[in-house]
Write a protein that binds this DNA or RNA. Structure first.
Lengths: 170, 170
DNA sequence: TGGCAATGTCAACAACGCTGACATAAAATG
DNA sequence: CATTTTATGTCAGCGTTGTTGACATTGCCA
């Protein structure tokens, strides 16, 4: 906003213009790339009668074995009613197991069953394949830049969660 | 997929492991960053009773003044019924104008009205502000890498549309 | 003139966000 | 021990936005 004070488009027109165009490109790149990013898993999910919300739950349960419902709620940033609808079907379908906590019996710890792990593998295979191809063709420097910018784009709270996950990353 | 043939996790365990972890981080970065990316406009949209679909329509109509409905359909990748629902409200609310084509009278050319431009500006201001901050803190090299990876992640058809838009970019 | 293209619209449905209200069990606290 | 708070689940209802299928209108084109 400091480059283009509201109402001022005179100062440094050309530079300004380029900057705005660059930002617009970034915005559109996010839109089109996110579409590609989700398209492969989406195809698999539809066959099973699931949606993206199921994928996200499966992903983070896989990522953090035995996480609690509350923890998952924070990561996903949805309401418990919304998450519960998804979790219920996953548990009914035998993809996720919910175990009562030992230390705190109010908590439910979530785990992928074998069937759940199979689907998780299937979903992350196609998503990782696309990411791998993109990373390869872009090169290591670009990959670093990619992650740096994405991290900077997150809300601070989300960035913290992202980094915490990365640390726990086996 | 060539790094980790299905069922084989023995070969080059450590290197393999790092790669998988890197991909996972990339996937999670996309998830958390996209959340941040949409959060600021979302806040504004809710106040007006609009959603993300309205934002997307407004964005691309702004980007390509006088674009046709069909063109917009291709860019957005949704059904005409879905787009029409959004367009109808925008036209009713006086944010978008639909003019019958001169060359081909079947076509409708779409334009933002002044009110539409005001909202567009408001939405892109906050979204660009976040993008600008992210770009600044990441640095020019990271920005280039960011866009390279995102472009590589798009479906070829979408990449073509993205690049075509970028060319037309004033 | 007949066929195809561009658009709009009606209806129904599904996924997945949301709010609000309420219930239960268990932990925590005074 | 009584009370409050926490973690979870559930019911009901609503809104946005995607889908499919069907059908109508208008206009271009061969």
């Amino acid at each position: 906003m400091t480059d283009r004070p509201s109402g001022d488009t005179k100062r440094g027109e050309t530079l300004l213009y380029l900057t705005d165009e660059q930002l617009r490109k970034g915005i559109e790149a996010m839109f089109f790339a996110y579409k590609g990013f989700t398209s492969d898993p989406d195809r698999i999910l539809v066959e099973r009668g699931y949606g993206r919300a199921h994928h996200r739950a499966i992903h983070f349960i896989h990522r953090s074995h035995g996480t609690t419902v509350n923890n998952l709620l924070e990561i996903l940033g949805v309401t418990k009613q919304s998450l519960n609808r998804v979790l219920r079907t996953l548990i009914e379908d035998g993809l996720v197991e919910s175990r009562v906590g030992t230390r705190d019996k109010r908590e439910r710890h979530l785990y992928l069953t074998e069937a759940g792990q199979v689907l998780e593998r299937e979903l992350s295979d196609v998503q990782q394949a696309r990411m791998r191809d993109a990373f390869r063709s872009a090169g290591p420097g670009a990959v670093a830049g990619f992650r740096t910018v994405l991290e900077a784009m997150m809300d601070p709270e989300m960035r913290r969660r992202y980094q915490r996950l990365a640390e726990n990353g086996q």
